[in-house]
Amino acid sequence: MNLDINGKTFQIDADPTTPLLYILRDQLQLNGAKFGCGLGQCGACTVIVDKQPVFSCITPVSALQGRKIRTIEGLGTLENPGPVQRAFIEEQAAQCGYCIPGMMMRAQALLEQNPAPSKSDIRRYMNANLCRCGTHMRILRAVERAAAFVKDGGKGGTAG
């Protein structure tokens, strides 16, 4: 089976029913997507498939062949973070940070669909993802800041 992840093709060998999350973490050593519930209730495992945020914990790899999968590792690196990552760093939008990769992928999907979301658009869109540390206010601000970065061509902000 072949998977297209962050623009690279990976050959994987797995039971076709295996949810993507386990392939990402266990086989491809991509840590971004996290296991939170395995039930599609919390969003810790969110990745982008084609243009939509998807819970990787309940999406079997057999459904993903030929589709474009993106994880936070595809948004930027420690040395060169992307706009959403920069926005989260600048807003200090993390406490434990466990929910944050899923938040960022959902935010990225939102901004690609709607580059200028209103505050209530952001809340509504982010509602599928849970945070237990109560970082919500900062996450909301980070999404707004990321929208501003995207607006000025991803140039804004300073790298963390």
Binding site: L75, F88, G97, I100
Partner: peptide, 21 residues
């Protein structure tokens, strides 16, 4: 001061015990 742990967390570095391999 910006938290020292956040950049690694937002870029998918292995930080958590869950990520230990």
């Amino acid at each position: 001061m910006q938290r020292v742990d956040i950049p690694a967390k937002v870029t998918g570095r292995a930080i958590y015990v869950q990520d230990l391999r």
